[in-house]
């Protein structure tokens, strides 16, 4: 794990300085400084309305920024577009759109196809290989309207994989998906990370942060804390980020989780999930077996 201090900002996969974004006079992000070190498994956490999705969208030039600078691999995002893949929230598209699973995954190729070019065999094979990685090759011809939430998220992952990027930005990839899908998808992300790619997720489930990620940004409109999960994701920083929204009991359980012994982690994860303040913290997977931890 490379500490951010040791990473020259100039070459970091993503670095923002003084980033400020506002929607209709409401401040969404205020003067944010944050750097993602190379090959990080990064995570952004914070309460609802903290500006987590806004951060991703302003990095990607989807929402305009009031001030601040974004550097992607040392230069502007526009210059490094081809090295970045984005997985938006599932609800952002109309799943009744006339397309099959294959069609959506193949949209990851469009950037490199000229207008006259048809999909060749090599392209098809690449799309199918990415669908296989997320366990969707058998459903390649299915209409996307017939997919479950988890399957939709798998298709979005396949589309991002097809792009063959170096930096992956994901907006709540595990919200409302089943446990099997979450396991498959986190394996895919860890696989990318092992190949030297950088990952940055907006994530709601605090109990899985230490297990999934190694670099964290705690965000609540402004920067609260960032750094390696092991040293930065603490009861104190969480208290500062969530304020009253995490009750005393949660913090104690989180503290137990953050001093990790496998048994206490499982207990804390269950307890946190059962009484978390945000609905999305409530795991839809119910009783998660402790054996899930690698």
């Amino acid at each position: 794990m490379v500490s951010p201090a040791a990473t020259p900002k100039a070459t970091a996969p993503l670095s923002v300085t003084g980033l400020t974004v506002s929607y209709n006079r409401k401040m969404a992000l205020f003067s944010l400084d944050f750097t993602v070190p190379p090959q990080a498994m990064g995570v952004i956490v914070g309460p609802n309305g903290a500006g987590k999705s806004t951060l991703l969208k302003s990095v990607l030039d989807i929402v305009p920024r009031v001030s601040g600078e974004v550097r992607v691999f040392g230069s502007s995002f526009a210059a490094n577009r081809h090295r970045v893949a984005y997985v938006p929230q599932r609800a952002s598209v109309d799943w009744e759109f006339p397309a099959t699973v294959f069609d959506v995954a193949a949209m990851g190729l469009y950037r490199e196809l000229s207008p006259l070019r048809l999909l060749g065999r090599a392209h098809r094979e690449r799309v199918m290989a990415c669908l296989a990685q997320v366990g969707m090759s058998d459903l390649a011809r299915r209409q996307i309207g017939q997919l479950s939430g988890g399957q939709q998220q798998r298709v979005f992952f396949a589309r991002a994989l097809v792009q063959g990027a170096d930096l992956y930005l994901l907006d709540e990839p595990f919200a409302g998906v089943d446990a099997a899908t979450e396991r498959t998808l986190i394996q895919v992300l860890h696989g990318l990370n092992a190949l030297g790619k950088t990952v940055l997720c907006v994530h709601h489930d605090l109990s899985t942060v230490p297990e999934y990620f190694d670099h964290v940004l705690l965000l609540n409109v402004r920067h609260v804390a960032s750094g390696p999960v092991a040293s930065t994701f603490t009861a104190a920083t969480l208290q500062e980020t969530y304020g009253d929204r995490l009750a005393e009991g949660h913090l104690q359980r989180l503290a137990a989780m953050l001093a990790p012994s496998p048994a206490s982690v499982a207990v804390a994860a269950g307890a946190l999930g059962a009484a978390a303040p945000q609905s999305s913290l409530l795991p839809e997977r119910g009783a998660r077996p402790a054996s899930r931890r690698p």
């Binding site: 990607l60 989807i62 598209v93 759109f97 397309a99 196809l113 589309r159």
Partner: peptide, 21 residues
Amino acid sequence: FLFRRRLTLVCFDASHAAVSG
């Protein structure tokens, strides 16, 4: 015919299309 891909991308997922340039 020439613009079909760009049109398809924007119709299905405008923000993804924007990120793709």
